[in-house]
Design a protein around this nucleic acid. Structure first.
Lengths: 303, 303
DNA sequence: AGCGATTGACAACCGCTGGTTGTCGCCGGT
DNA sequence: ACCGGCGACAACCAGCGGTTGTCAATCGCT
């Protein structure tokens, strides 16, 4: 019987990393799943491929012998699909909205499926809509607030919670979590003109919070430094996005309600390009696996 | 993502046969399953590989382009496992019992797993037991009647129904099925000395049937010719084994009760050879898939 | 030594994939 | 026009392969 390429790839990665956890990470599965895969491969081959000693992982002799042919087999497989896959042009996609790492979701999607993306950056929904209708891009990704332009469709693909991020000197800095209305005394610092940051505006309105707009967006490090320096300010930031390594900054989950940022895709309704389908499928898959679309009106807040 | 080798192999076979049914047969799966596999592969590649017209199946242009690399990928996979699989010696196995095609079960097993078997033929259980204990063979396959020799273990692997086979001139020849006791007027013809054909003897005893033994076993064609020539005789034969193409011969299912022939494996209890495990696993697998081990005492008869 | 952190294995659970059987529609030959 | 052969479609179900939760062993740090 043919070896399962998923198992073979698991072995190759484990052999490269010599570390189950990291190899699993690269496959974006759990360490346990990777362990099972390799165990299954070893049992099918009837040979131990890796020595798991207390001190890390090492290749056994048969493991060494297997590694090369295993890589060849994987390459041959990919060559086979490449032989039929019409390369096609990459999918042109523009991202907009809350400035911080808005495309890490897309980045992960793109590297896990074999989609080819060409990422751009739009200023806001209207500018991206215009680019779509002008055929400069194929898809837009950001927070959609209705009504969307005629001729465009949208689909919600991810609901993402946000943390409050504030200085270590802020009075609330040591709370384990916060109700949004407890931020009422603080100033919501927004890195850019507020009319482009619809979510922040609505958040402030909903919870009665004062806003302070700095004129210009100088990037993530500057943002973090600003927050760290001013104990009267705070801002919002997604928890699964690594904060820049600035001392004196805290990230605190918001609960009751938990504010959710809604990411959607927008595209021309009549787009005949078949490039979109794989992207939608990959996003739907990730959404299911990571429960990106769970919404409980009693628990969550959505502008 | 890597292509699933099961799907690729399905495509390669279908491309060779240009016929879904035959390709499915070679994979020993159903035609529907093969159809789904190929559809899944096509959908994953986003390309149609085969044209299914009313007049047979034909390769599309992308299909032609894919075929070669696909074969390479499969070969590379097999080369990889061959690189670690210690070839080892083949498993020596002896078969005995009711003379007709007793090893077609094993044959199918052997060709579907990548076991290497060395088939021999023993006269009866005692002779095979002796060969086992003398280390001339590793496993025996046949109908085991207790007590089995000290130092040997056995496992039941298949229950197989038997048909009555008789001449077209036999009075019961046009029945759709028979109760075994309706054969009481006929002679059970046994191709060989009855003491080696324990099943036939017990069958005759149980249903009160007279036996007639021809001295010597002259092979399957001779057997069929004998039966066809004598309308007072009948014998027993497994229904899924093709009868030789002799005119005037009928095979009729037996019901109420349905007699079952019990095939078992026998081996040395202390055999340290790891060669046995895959065989047992493959047989267990086939038994599950084909319901080889279903037994209902109200419906079936087992000597 | 003792403690905590790290790392892989094991168990329970579960949704989905890929198999099965049963049936249908289409095409071509007689 | 009918019949037979072949592939597609539908419904169903077991098992695989993933997840989370825990445990045991080892190593480094105090």
């Amino acid at each position: 019987m043919d070896p399962d390429p998923a198992q073979v790839r698991a072995f190759v990665l484990a052999a490269e990393e010599l570390h189950f956890g990291r190899a699993a990470e690269r496959l974006s599965i759990s360490q346990q799943a990777l362990s099972k895969r390799i165990a299954a491969l070893e049992s099918r081959l009837g040979v131990r491929l890796l020595d798991r000693g207390g001190r890390g992982v090492r290749l056994t002799e048969p493991g060494t012998r297997f590694l090369g042919p295993a890589r060849n087999a994987l390459n041959a497989g990919e060559a086979a699909v490449a032989a039929v896959r019409p390369a096609g042009r990459p999918l042109r996609i523009d991202v907009w909205g809350h400035l911080f790492a808005p495309m890490r979701t897309l980045g992960r999607i793109a590297e896990r499926s074999e989609l080819r993306l060409e990422l751009g950056h739009g200023r806001d929904l209207p500018s991206v809509s215009a680019a779509l209708l002008g055929h400069q891009i194929d898809v837009g990704f950001g927070r959609v607030h209705p009504p969307v332009d005629e001729g465009l469709t949208q689909r919600l693909v991810r609901l993402e919670p946000v943390d409050a991020v504030l200085s270590a000197d802020h009075p609330l800095a040591s709370e384990p979590h916060l109700r949004p209305d407890r931020l009422r005394g603080s100033l919501l610092w927004t890195p850019g003109p507020l009319d482009r940051l619809d979510f922040l505006r609505r958040f402030a309105d909903r919870f009665g919070i004062e806003r302070h707009t700095s004129g210009v967006n100088l990037g993530l490090d500057h943002f973090a430094a600003q927050i760290a320096a001013d104990p009267t300010c705070f801002s919002l930031f997604p928890p699964d996005c690594p904060l820049p390594d600035v001392p004196g900054i805290r990230s605190i989950p918001l609960l009751e309600p938990m504010p959710l940022y809604a990411w959607s895709l927008v595209w021309r309704r009549d787009d005949p390009s078949h490039l979109l389908a794989p992207l939608l499928a990959a996003l739907a898959d990730q959404a299911r696996r990571n429960r990106w679309l769970e919404f409980d009106p009693n628990r969550d807040w959505l502008p």
